[in-house]
Design a protein around this nucleic acid. Sequence first.
DNA 1: CTGAAAGCGCTAACAA
DNA 2: TTGTTAGCGCTTTCAG
Lengths: 321, 321
Amino acid sequence: MSLVLNGKAKQSRISDAVAQRVLAYVEEVGYKPNQLAKSLRTGKTHVIGLVVEDISNSFFATVAWLIEKQAFERGYRIIYCSTDNDPAKTKELISMFRERHVDGFIIVPSEGIEKEVSAILREQTPTVLFDRHLPDLSTNYVVVDGAQGTYAATQHLLEQGCRRVAFVTIDSTQTQMEERLRGYTQALQEHNLPAQVKRVVVTKETEKVVADIHDFIRDMPECDAIIFATNYLTIYGLEAIAQLQRRIPADLAVISYDDHDLFRLYTPAITAIAQPVESIAKNVIDILLEELQPSAEPAIGLSQQVLPTQLIIRQSSIRPA
Amino acid sequence: MSLVLNGKAKQSRISDAVAQRVLAYVEEVGYKPNQLAKSLRTGKTHVIGLVVEDISNSFFATVAWLIEKQAFERGYRIIYCSTDNDPAKTKELISMFRERHVDGFIIVPSEGIEKEVSAILREQTPTVLFDRHLPDLSTNYVVVDGAQGTYAATQHLLEQGCRRVAFVTIDSTQTQMEERLRGYTQALQEHNLPAQVKRVVVTKETEKVVADIHDFIRDMPECDAIIFATNYLTIYGLEAIAQLQRRIPADLAVISYDDHDLFRLYTPAITAIAQPVESIAKNVIDILLEELQPSAEPAIGLSQQVLPTQLIIRQSSIRPA
DNA sequence: CTGAAAGCGCTAACAA
DNA sequence: TTGTTAGCGCTTTCAG
């Protein structure tokens, strides 16, 4: 019976008559297999654990949604959780997923979780990191070429005639943030212009963050352009700029790393370094499902991908002539 | 051993010595119980299935996040899924959750899923609906008094001197949408003013939706105020209004049902009928966890709550004198 | 007070 | 080609 249900009738040389009979009975009784028992027996849950930084952030929400859709089509279910970038919470979530015997992991790693991730790797559980990676670990990952993105953005601002371009980022040594900073500094260096970097400490109290950015901009009257390293920093920044009554782009040009619905609708529309969400999702799930194939040789080779960004130029970075 | 681990040592009169020995051994080996086997045996998974319309919508994202946090603290895990308001997908998701033996359901019901929900109810699986409910079914639910919200909003617009207030909603007979419409019509009736209602068909092609609203506004030059029945309708509407170059609030006052980050930051800031997300989340999870208590009498009584909204007045609805 | 054993529903190996 | 059965890891009952 089990064979028939799992579509192994042919291969197990079970007669069509029996297969039919089983199927008919199953239909009649409305039999639903107990997934729990099945999983206990086979060790496979067909569930993938997705650990992102913040599911309410549109970037992660979109990627998660695309991943879920693709996985669903291929018979896998996704369970999400947000880490809020808190290592303790991340560890707890990973441990919870392990207890629930997920077949694979997709993780946006916060800092300091190398130990937990290498534990998963040691158990041979297929895993893909995305958005950032852990440089000390050999893992699959899909990231974006942030340096190229901020380099192009800085270049664009310089072409618009800006000479004092500032960079607002978060207080973090994660790979993706370092990269974004690197592209910016490099572009300025090539033009022999000074860099002006603010590392904001992001807390729950959004007013404090806004005030922090507010003070940074206020104390830098000569500044004529700002690049924000994440979309939520840009949103805080726009609030600060409004408070200071600086006009965009006349007084201050603005570019955001990572796009957002709001940026298209804001007045003026905000130029953004867009990440290729579809490609990210597709690559992540492809790598994972490939490793989930029983046929695949384990550790046959890591897949480490770096995807390009795209600069979407809107009004906020176009200086009047 | 099982007794000790589950904290039933005392009650089963197991000697402290043995309990200690077991605990020490467990610690030493790093034993982790297999949740799958446990669930198979007990029939309890400690997982709650959360079926929302669209997890990337900030309203649902926030409520989901609050529910998850509360549930986590009390030992329950949440698995989410989005229905996109598609009955077929909703049925599939409910059936998937049933297969996974979730202990309880939290559902934002789309239309036409009465049969599935009553099947869950018949199985005595604790369930709470929110945001809207199914009038034909006796279930627990937590909804918002949308009629009161739109009534107050319309009233406010009339006080501002508006005389031709239009209402843009979606093509749906769901309870919450009907309520929102009702509050609007009632307020206008009391002032003997004509109602002007547009029911938009929401599709994947956002341009079409925007164009639809665009045409509605264009063909109604005497209109001096609009209430949008959802936050995403407002976002489409703002785009349409920008295309038409109508000034807010001078030419057209705007109010959105359901608040959004964007509305605070938009120029001008958009007046919104805010829903009490914290209360919704708290009430939903409290009702569900109460029913999940084995002590609770089943069907002892339904909990049906209607929470108030709050009108947050911003610039978009203040007419110049 | 403690250890042994049945059985949750399923799959896969093994007899028949 | 088919029916039978062991056992996945746990809880809980029932002898010891």
